[in-house]
């Protein structure tokens, strides 16, 4: 496999993942920037994407990008590490199948534990977001 010319080691338990947040400047031109987000956020994005579907890694990445309208583009390596770790924790399970190219592809789906995790994490995240939102918004009556 060709070596990647860019990037830090994206593994390790202490480091976060890099999600490229494609910010746009006032003229609408995307400015590449990197934002460190917690691993948990990546996990929840993947879990939500998998809800009700059976997808392979590339499909997950595409869907997340489409869903966020291009604002969030997850680094592929990070995505796969997260997928495999979640498989180890038993939140997703994987099976080999055949993808569009005809080659072998690994398909993921949620387990019962994964569904539970999704519910819990979603609730937490929404509460967190709401709290931040309340701080940032102008004081309401």
């Amino acid at each position: 496999m060709p070596r990647s010319p860019v990037g830090q080691g994206a593994g390790g338990s202490q480091e976060g993942y890099y999600i490229r947040f494609l910010a746009k400047d006032p003229e609408g031109i995307p400015v590449a920037d990197s934002l460190q987000l917690l691993r948990g956020t990546l996990d929840i994005l993947i879990l939500k994407t998998l809800a009700g579907s059976r997808l392979h890694g590339y499909a997950i990445a595409s869907r997340i990008a489409a869903r966020t309208r291009g604002a969030l583009a997850i680094e592929d390596g990070a995505l796969y590490q997260s997928l495999h770790r979640m498989a180890e924790r038993g939140w997703v399970e994987a099976e080999w199948g055949h993808g569009e190219t005809g080659k072998r592809a690994r398909f993921y789906q949620l387990t019962e534990a994964g569904r539970r995790q999704l519910r819990v994490e979603t609730a937490n995240w929404l509460r967190y977001a709401e709290a931040v939102f309340r701080v940032l918004q102008p004081d309401a009556a």
């Binding site: 994206a10 592929d76 390596g77 180890e88």
Partner: peptide, 26 residues
């Protein structure tokens, strides 16, 4: 396309190692 695909992937070797490790543990 090939070059950019690899670049977009990120840390190829590290990811590979991490995935294998996680799979072995499982």
């Amino acid at each position: 396309a090939r070059e950019e695909a690899v670049r977009m992937f990120g840390d190829l070797e590290g990811t590979r190692a991490e995935m294998s490790a996680a799979d072995r543990r499982r």
